[in-house]
Design a protein around this nucleic acid. Sequence first.
DNA 1: TTTTACATACATTCTCGTATGTATGTAAGA
DNA 2: TCTTACATACATACGAGAATGTATGTAAAA
Lengths: 220, 220
Amino acid sequence: MVRRTREEAEQTRSLLLDTAETLFWEKGVSRTSLADIAQAAGLTRGAIYWHFQNKVDLFTAMCQRIEPSFFALFDALEAEAAVNPARALWRHVNRVLATITGDARITRVIGIINLRCELVGEMDAIQVENERGQERCHGHLTRAFEAAQRLGQLSAGTTPCHAAAGLQALVKGIVHIWLLTPRNLPLPDCGTACLSPYFQGVFVGDCWLDADDGAPHDAL
Amino acid sequence: MVRRTREEAEQTRSLLLDTAETLFWEKGVSRTSLADIAQAAGLTRGAIYWHFQNKVDLFTAMCQRIEPSFFALFDALEAEAAVNPARALWRHVNRVLATITGDARITRVIGIINLRCELVGEMDAIQVENERGQERCHGHLTRAFEAAQRLGQLSAGTTPCHAAAGLQALVKGIVHIWLLTPRNLPLPDCGTACLSPYFQGVFVGDCWLDADDGAPHDAL
DNA sequence: TTTTACATACATTCTCGTATGTATGTAAGA
DNA sequence: TCTTACATACATACGAGAATGTATGTAAAA
């Protein structure tokens, strides 16, 4: 077997991950065998076992490839929330939608996690990781809503914790529906239209509006 | 093999479905074999194959068992929307959450569909059916929002179609998060708290409030 | 020369669909 | 009413294919 350079080996690894993404989306994780992935990549299972311990390891690596993008989104939220929390939250969720819909890899991996795998048994560790991520997200959002509350931006009766949970649920739901049936919920424009009522309910007046948005009434 | 009465056979069939629900939730659909289900039910695979053509058929029958409950929910929405659409919508979504969280079978089946299976390949027919259901749901909600609009209940800039999509997404997200981590989003109370801001944003004033709810500010 | 990045071979297990066996329910006939 | 023939509701056995993990081979990089 022709030995490869380290660069080439790294390219093989990426090719395997890219191929896995494609097949996992098409056929589901369970029904995609390592032989399927190897063949589609023009390699053999030996290559997969060289780079990854097993299917779960391959799947985990695939998921980890998109993590940095989400860290960056929350970093940005935190920075902007120090100035105008409500507007920061509006920008954040719009960026989240734009990121998910605008990056093919992120779209694929999020789609696979949500619709193409069963995170139980050996995959449970990934499920636990997802829950952690969800809780971190909720924490970030809650802190931004708390900051908004201190500035008097929250509408009467709105609690940061619940507002955060609701927003998280709304975004999750929008993404989920979009993944299932993209034509029924064209993003990102339709996402903005779905998010507006929530922001109208949670904040006072239009403190959450971005100067670039103009009036949402006109955009709808 | 002892032949059974029709009643007993029907009981066997139900037992198989119940057992499948339990195991599908625990282990995922793919990783639950028909032999697993048969053994857990104290039967053999022969019994499964007598009642169902294959695993997909069993899975389909399991899903169909919860359909009537959802038809009833939308029938009620339609009837109540004729009187007060906004309030009808509020009642509807609260009933949806109560139904999903209050019926063990519905919880299980919804959980399995959302988190424990990969609806591709042979399961695609079920996926198509889900999409249809989602579209019917969207239609129901849109019509209720249109009725609300005709009565001047919608806030300025809100379109029925988008309001319906957003509400659908919000409920879906709430249920999804609850299924994943019930302790993080205790339903139904927390669901109501997450839904209130959306209703506040979508409707004018408190036309959506149910007389039994009192002021949501107090409940939160 | 040693190590690496694969390819290939081997062995095992699992799951499925189908065929066959079997005891009993049920309906029809005597 | 009893008997019989058929159908039923399972249990068991068979065979085939698929997928996995591990061991081994190999040519080239380091």
